[in-house]
Amino acid sequence: MPKIDELEATARRALHIFYVLDTSGSMTGTPVATLNRAMEETVEVLRKQAKSNADAELKIAVLEFNTGARWIQPNGPENMEDFIWEDLSAGGLTDVGAALSELDSKLSRKAFLNSMTGAYLPIIIFMSDGYATDNYQKALDEIRQNKWFARSTKIGFALGENPDMKMISEVVGNSEAVVRTQDLDLFARLIKFASVTASMMCSTSRTSNQDVTGADILKEAIDQGSAPESIVENVPVDVPESSADEKDSASDGWDADDWE
């Protein structure tokens, strides 16, 4: 018999969590400080979980946007088990279009999604507290054609007094998956609960064969955080049918070469 000590750990599919975070000038002061502490705590919990998660290998990448957009991990998503949060600082514009273009360019097998062991559909957590300062519509139209974006689980957070609910809902593609709050402590709790719930999606027993959506995850986070349901504000958005979906179903998605 082979030596038990020589066997390798069971192969796990990657589960990528992307945080797309607004660090524009309006986040200066308490908001960005709260964001940093919330992310630090979130990462701490996720890191502990990743060590015993046999269902998925958690990977994390953080994209901040202000004047332009910048990956904190330019070489691609890092293993959650080794990940350390680096504090972000706020300042500059709100270039949502730049963030979406950057995200679009990396949501590809040739870029950030190149796991040898296969992958689950990614999770994207998007947070903003204001209105876009660039023309994001073109970038949004383009990223909606990206299969990974179209099929990812997306959750939105709208912070502060005057967030652009329409823009955030359009990015997330489902207004029921967007939380709006001015309460920073509540935001900190909810982003943690939502991140943890999303990361355990593949490990949780189901009640039905239906897919788990961003809205389901938020609902659970809201239950756990004892937050009022009313913080999910319903802004109807018109999400065009993604041609990415059609391509996917035509090829059944079996062929790895279909995805780029």
Binding site: G118, L121, R151
Partner: peptide
């Protein structure tokens, strides 16, 4: 077969 780039619910 399971080494798929994106495990969609359909897959």
């Amino acid at each position: 077969r399971s080494l798929v780039p994106a495990m969609s619910p359909e897959l």
